[in-house]
């Protein structure tokens, strides 16, 4: 099934110019596999607060994001949509004094959520997601997306599929860096973030910064797709752990 999905992606997005077979691609990845093509250690935690519908903390290396999902709940009149749920995403920095515009980030996360959540199930209601920055050391967007997905899972919001995001940096020598930290980000010429859904491994959201060629974009996308598998594995582990905990607590 998974193999099929990968083939599908290559045919869908790369077109004729890049007919790379799955096996060949895996070889390519393993050949260049070095430190830069690995995710930073990832720690996930669901239901980390005693109150609220759903919450999760996602740590990718030193980047730590806490997400909270609430809903479906009452919606403001002006934001009401007649046939589906409104999704609100708010990003909060830990200190209010330092400014910064995160509207774009909020929008990217919202777009990804809108494709994943079955919004038509809850018309005229709001599903709100709050992202709280706890530590920002690179790859902020992908960490936000991952935390958001986990929080939605924890809140029990009906979804088409889960999604996982990977940030890839392209350095000046066209080397790829997966999940770059803040110092690596500074050295990178451009940053690409991709989010894939779990069912068919199709692209849910992408965000790009800086200059790059179409080829590198596609190369990065494939790499990201590969790596998103690892993140899905982490998600599964986390959910499993959570359920074992709940089962343990059950009798008491």
């Amino acid at each position: 099934m998974k193999g099929d999905a990968r083939v599908k992606i290559t045919t869908q997005d790369t077109g004729k110019s890049l007919e790379v077979e799955l096996n060949a691609k895996q070889k390519e990845v393993s050949a260049t596999a070095n430190e830069y093509l690995k995710l930073r250690p990832m720690i996930l935690q669901m239901s980390c607060y005693a109150r609220g519908d759903g919450a999760a903390i996602c740590m990718q290396g030193d980047t730590v994001i806490s997400a909270q999902a609430t809903g479906p709940a009452e919606v403001k009149l002006q934001k009401e949509i007649m046939d589906k749920a409104t999704i609100e995403v708010i990003f909060r920095t830990k200190s209010t004094g330092t400014g910064g515009n995160y509207v774009l980030l909020e929008k990217s996360v919202r777009d990804a959520c809108e494709t994943a959540i079955l919004t038509t199930l809850h018309p005229r209601s709001a599903i709100s997601i709050i992202l709280l920055e706890m530590q920002n050391y690179g790859s902020l967007l992908s960490c936000c997306l991952n935390a958001c997905c986990l929080a939605l899972l924890d809140a029990g919001v009906p979804m088409n599929s889960t999604f996982a995001a990977v940030t890839i940096g392209i350095s000046k020598d066209d080397d790829l860096i997966v999940d770059p930290d803040d110092t690596q980000e500074e050295e990178c010429e451009s940053l690409l973030t991709f989010a894939f859904e779990s069912q068919n491994l199709e692209l849910v959201a992408s965000h790009a910064d800086g200059q790059f060629t179409a080829e590198t974009f596609i190369k990065c996308m494939k790499l990201a797709c590969e790596i998103s598998q690892e993140i899905f594995q982490e998600f599964r582990k986390c959910v499993k752990k959570q359920h074992i905990e709940i089962e343990k607590e059950g009798p008491t």
Partner: peptide, 12 residues
């Protein structure tokens, strides 16, 4: 000193 409630739903 500033106090904020960023994660609203965890406050009752």
């Amino acid at each position: 000193i500033n106090v904020d409630f960023p994660l609203m739903s965890s406050i009752l």
